[in-house]
Amino acid sequence: MTEVVTGMDGSGTTAAGPAPAAPSAAEPSVARISNWSEIRARFLANKLAVFGLLIVVILLLVAVFAPLIAPADPLHQDLMNTLKEPSSKHWLGTDALGRDQLSRIIYGSRIAMIVGLASILLACFIGITLGAIAGYFGRIWDTLIMRVADVFFAFPLLVGAIVIILLMGRGVLPVVISLGIFSWATFARLLRSQILSVREMDYVHAAKALGASRRRIVLKHILPNSVTSVVVYAASSVGIAIVAEASLSFLGVGVSPEVAEWGNMIFAGKDFMGVKDYLWVYPSLSIVTTALGFVFLGNGLRDALDPKLR
């Protein structure tokens, strides 16, 4: 593979040089970057996006106010009332230990939200830092970081989670850490590729020509113009992280089995498949709804921020 390492004017090989940007009249001039009111207007015009936002807001409220909303203690075992079908007393029935399913789902949203948001925050933090270094400094840093990213990208999440649990034991923190360190690679790649194009923008050259420090160039010029896509991707990723978190718990490498958590509930319900389907159907629906909510929100943000990406 042959490549020209640094940007230069004109052409490396036979390719034509940069075309003098020609005035063309394809469509009336449309602003490239919109201000916040335009972004908000575009977002609100997107029904699916608003729906997603609504789901996410409701879920956040449910998670925060779980103790006020839940009809019962999610851990309270009522061995006299096990495996009760949904009724007016227990809206979503009870499980094999007589715990109120609705309360467990409500409390389960806390784990989902905490793990989803925290793991993606962690992934963003690692990914943005390393992606920025790789993209801006390039050379050996780029090669090094991107190869490490490849490894993390290819590494199975499940194996990683087992290793972390072996080291830390079960619990919320290990789950957050395993999800975080096994999903930063995508963020780093995304940011790096954005930076590679933003880095060559003339306003970055202009800042350099003025004598701006590297810090200033990265923080004022490069990051604000390259981080949007990462933020948007992060919003959708929260949903994916919640699914992954439930999967880990289902597989027994997530939070402790007694915790009110959707994956645990499905695991407990799977033995009653075809008999007591309410045990696994409602937690599954919760996962799907939550994940979709974040995905719709993320897509809506993307379309609102950059209508051309659609």
Binding site: A21, I33, H205
Partner: peptide
Amino acid sequence: MVFQDPYTSLNPR
């Protein structure tokens, strides 16, 4: 310096 492309030479943000 003054640059060629007035669309990429000013930071849009």
